[in-house]
């Protein structure tokens, strides 16, 4: 297997708020490799976005974080601003969660694509235009030459998402992080967008991160899956094994809630009952305990650590490897 291109070691992110500290990310570690796709799954508020915003050193101003994010042996969390800027968009591209508002409304698509290339790659306008038209072809934007003169509001949601992906591809980064790239789109457009990621994986050697709350999005696409709950990674597993035999009860719950699993049963989707944990006062024991069918006394007393089961990992007292 290729050496990791990015290593994250025991990352913690917390936010200072008037009502106390929000522990959004707790002791998360993972590695990204070229040509591999990491799927990150978890329900809303589980810390998926903040984990990767920390990787980009782009957290909100009330955040503090610790741990290591190593790229080429350098810790991005300690890097001066000027050096971080040369990595953002250039070595690591981040496709923001809210595609509809991520494009500056008063700038033309062409300008929005151009600026990154001119700043990071020092291309001339004509070289940049050629490159832009190429990339717009990769993300399947028809009639690209006229679209680059349009404003964002003149494009549909799916088109805007494609523009964001094009923006991420332009500087040929080593890593692309896509935060819920399909959430706001209807099913057919979702499939088209996901096809683009499949082609990227096949045709380039970029390391890909797909963040989603829907296991269906990464099924058959991710190589490895990290399941997050309450700001922690509760299961890390090769994708197929995770689908066949989830180690953590939360993963099992997510799988059961997938449409394709339940639809042939003709029943309503069994959503996981209960509320996500309060990140301001995480319990001493397992954060998933109140919602877990396997819960026992030990779950209240002792927080399960992330343990290895073969080449998989899970944080549950009752996990059994196979």
């Amino acid at each position: 297997m290729l050496d990791p291109i990015l290593e994250v070691e025991s990352l913690n992110v917390s936010f200072a708020t008037p009502d106390g500290t929000v522990n959004a990310v707790n002791d998360v570690s993972f590695k990204l490799r070229r040509k591999r796709c990491l799927g990150v799954v978890g329900e809303s508020g589980s810390g998926k976005s903040q984990t990767f915003l920390a990787v980009m050193a782009s957290l909100a101003s009330n955040a503090s974080c610790s741990g290591k994010v190593l790229l080429d042996g350098k810790n991005l969390l300690r890097l001066p601003k000027a050096e971080i800027r040369q990595i953002r968009g250039n070595r690591i591209a981040f496709i923001m969660q809210d595609a509809l508002t991520a494009l500056t409304p008063h700038m033309r698509i062409g300008e929005l694509l151009m600026e990154g290339l001119m700043i990071h790659k020092k291309l001339s306008r004509s070289e940049a235009t050629r490159k832009i038209l190429n990339v717009l072809d990769v993300v399947r934007i028809p009639d690209a030459a006229s679209r680059i003169n349009m404003y964002p509001h003149e494009l549909s949601g799916g088109m805007r998402q494609r523009i964001l992906i094009a923006q991420a591809l332009l500087c040929e980064p080593d890593i692309i992080i896509a935060d819920e790239p399909t959430t706001a789109l209807d099913v057919t457009v979702q499939a088209q967008i996901l096809d683009i990621f499949d082609e990227l994986k096949r045709d380039t050697d970029v390391a890909l991160v797909l963040i989603t709350h829907d296991l269906g999005v990464i099924a058959g696409r991710a190589d490895e899956v990290m399941v997050m709950y309450g700001g922690r990674a509760v299961e890390k597993s090769e994708m197929r094994a995770l689908y066949v035999n989830p180690l953590h009860p939360y993963t099992a719950g997510l799988l059961a809630a997938m449409p394709s699993f339940a639809s042939n049963l003709g029943e309503a989707l069994p959503a996981i009952a209960g509320q996500p944990p309060d990140l301001q006062s995480l319990p001493k024991g397992c954060a998933f305990m109140p919602r877990c069918s396997k819960a026992a006394q030990i779950c209240t007393d002792e927080r399960p650590l992330l343990k290895s089961y073969g080449d998989r990992k899970a944080a549950c007292h009752f996990a059994e490897g196979s």
């Binding site: 980009m56 782009s58 591209a93 600026e115």
Partner: peptide, 15 residues
């Protein structure tokens, strides 16, 4: 969001 996005693309603060 779009100003955040611009910063995340590594543009200099002046731009």
């Amino acid at each position: 969001n779009y100003v955040r996005a611009a910063r995340m693309r590594g543009l200099p603060e002046r731009n």
